[in-house]
C-alpha cells in the first residue's frame, strides 16, 4: 500500500465521519424541534382547560336559558327547580353565598391582618419561623374536615350561646370557613408588609413614632394594595368554597339575611343535584351549569381585580 492510498483512505473516513456527524446533527435538530413543540403543547393544555370550562358552562347555560328566561333567572325570588312548582330565581342561592362569605370574611380579614402585622412587625425571626408554618397547616386541612368540625363541634357549641340556632345554619360554617381562609389572608398580607422598604420604617421612627404608629400608619398604608389583593382573593375563595357549607349550612334556598336558620349556597346546590339521581340532559341537570356559570363569573371578576392590585404593589417597590 503506498502512502497516497492511505491518505485517500483516511480522507474517505473523515468524509464519512463528517457526513455521519452532519446527519446526526440534523436528526438532533429535528428532535429539538419536536421536543420544543411538545413542551409548548403542555403549556397549551392550560389554555385548553380554560376554553373547556368556558365552552361547557356557556353551552349548558345556553340550553338552560332556552327553557327559562334570563329575566326570570334574575328577578324571581324563589329557587325550587327540584320541586313540582318550579321557580328559577338565582337570588336565594346568591344570598346564601353572600351570607356565609360575609361571616367568613368578618372572621378572616381582621384576624388575618392582625396576625400578619404581628408576624411581620412584632415577632422575632425565630417565633415567626415557627408560627407561620403552623398557621399554614390550617390552609392544608381538607374542607370536608372543616365541615365535620362545623356541624358536630361548632354548631352544638354555638347553640348553647345563641337561642333558636338551627342544627343547620349560616353562622357556624361561616365562622369555620373564616378560620380556613385566615392563613391565606395572613400569609399574603404578611408578604406585602414584608416588602415595604426598611427605610420607610426608619424614617417614621426617626420622627419619634412608636412601633404601633409605624405599623398602622406607615407600613399598613404602604402595603395596602397587597393587603387588598389578599382580601379579594379571600372573598373569591369563600364564594367558591363548597364542602363546609354543603355539610353544615343546610339545603334550603331562602332569600334571607338571617344567619340562624338553614340556607343554601350556589356551590352546595351543585353538590345536592350531583348527589341525587338527576338524569343528564334534564332541566334540573342544566341548572347546575347555569349556577356554575354565575359562580365562575363572580370569582373571575374578583380574581381579575385582585391581580390588578397585586401588579400595582409589585410596581411600587
Amino acid at each position: 500500500m503506498t502512502l497516497r492510498d492511505t491518505t485517500s483512505l483516511s480522507q474517505a473516513a473523515t468524509q464519512a465521519d463528517v457526513y455521519l456527524a452532519l446527519r446526526r446533527k440534523q436528526g438532533r435538530r429535528l428532535a429539538e424541534t419536536v421536543i420544543r413543540y411538545t413542551l409548548l403543547a403542555c403549556g397549551l393544555v392550560s389554555i385548553l382547560t380554560t376554553l373547556g370550562i368556558v365552552t361547557v358552562l356557556l353551552f349548558e347555560s345556553f340550553q338552560f336559558f332556552r327553557e327559562v328566561s334570563v329575566v326570570e333567572f334574575l328577578t324571581d325570588t324563589q329557587w325550587t327547580p327540584l320541586f313540582k312548582d318550579k321557580h328559577f330565581g338565582i337570588w336565594p342561592l346568591v344570598a346564601g353565598t353572600f351570607l356565609t362569605s360575609a361571616i367568613a370574611l368578618s372572621v378572616a380579614l381582621p384576624l388575618g391582618l392582625l396576625s400578619a402585622i404581628y408576624l411581620s412587625e412584632y415577632a422575632s425571626p425565630r417565633v415567626r419561623s415557627v408560627l407561620k408554618p403552623i398557621l399554614e397547616i390550617l390552609a392544608g386541612i381538607p374542607t370536608v374536615v372543616y365541615g365535620y368540625f362545623a356541624l358536630l363541634f361548632v354548631t352544638p357549641l354555638l347553640q348553647k350561646v345563641i337561642p333558636n340556632l338551627a342544627g343547620f345554619n349560616a353562622i357556624s360554617p361561616g365562622i369555620v370557613m373564616g378560620i380556613m381562609i385566615l392563613p391565606m389572608v395572613s400569609s399574603l398580607s404578611e408578604d406585602a408588609l414584608h416588602a415595604v422598604p426598611r427605610a420607610l420604617r426608619d424614617a417614621a421612627y426617626a420622627l419619634g413614632a412608636t412601633k404601633f404608629e409605624v405599623s398602622t400608619q406607615v407600613v399598613v398604608p404602604a402595603a395596602l394594595s397587597g393587603i387588598t389583593a389578599s382580601f379579594i382573593l379571600a372573598v373569591s375563595r369563600a364564594v367558591g368554597e363548597t364542602m363546609i357549607v354543603a355539610i353544615a349550612a343546610g339545603q334550603r334556598p331562602v332569600l334571607t339575611l338571617d344567619p340562624r336558620g338553614p340556607i343554601q349556597t350556589m356551590t352546595a346546590y351543585i353538590v345536592q343535584v350531583s348527589l341525587g339521581d338527576t338524569p343528564a340532559g334534564s332541566l334540573a341537570f342544566k341548572t347546575i351549569f347555569a349556577v356554575g356559570f354565575t359562580l365562575f363569573l363572580i370569582t373571575l371578576v374578583l380574581n381579575v381585580i385582585s391581580h390588578f392590585f397585586v401588579r400595582r404593589y409589585r410596581e411600587q417597590y
Binding site: V56, S236, T242, T299
Partner: peptide, 9 residues
Amino acid sequence: GVPSIIYGL
C-alpha cells in the same frame, strides 16, 4: 383561582 367545583362541572 377557579373554584374546584367548576372543574367538577
